[in-house]
């Protein structure tokens, strides 16, 4: 099994990718199932951080060797994604606050006036 070999190997890109995948899945599940709006936003952050872990891993020359790695670009992208995530979180929280001011709850199921 791949996972079995990963436990015995020295830490490489695959390990980081698995962590990133776990974060991604956790974030998706969080976004899909949480009823609290802040929980949903936390899920968004988890997803973005999963991708960040990926970027850092593929950008590291130590893990993959100079030729195959993405180099500094990976770390650069991770930095920018952190900034993006912060901006997005700020805006999403502002929208959540606006929602709260009219509906007085942050339960996402309360957003039911507009039906698809």
């Amino acid at each position: 099994m791949i996972l079995a070999s990963l436990v015995t190997e020295p830490v490489g890109v695959a390990h980081y990718l698995i962590v990133g995948a776990v974060l991604f899945i956790a974030g998706i599940v969080c976004m899909a199932t949480k009823r609290n709006l802040l929980g949903v936003l936390m899920g968004v952050e988890l997803v973005l951080n999963g991708a960040n872990v990926n970027f850092i891993a593929i950008g590291s020359p130590y893990l993959r060797g100079d030729a195959a790695s993405v180099g500094l670009d990976g770390q650069l992208m991770a930095l920018f994604v952190i900034v993006l995530a912060a901006a997005e979180a700020a805006v999403a929280l502002a929208i959540a606050l606006n929602f709260y001011n009219t509906v007085h709850t942050i339960d996402v199921d309360a957003a039911d006036q507009l039906r698809g």
Binding site: I28, L37, V44, V47, V81, A92, N98, Q113
Partner: peptide
Amino acid sequence: GEAALKYSVYGAAAAGVMLYGVSL
């Protein structure tokens, strides 16, 4: 407010998924 909420949550989710795909 509801429309903005839905748009931002779905949009953030889609952007996150796309970002993960980009990283892969």
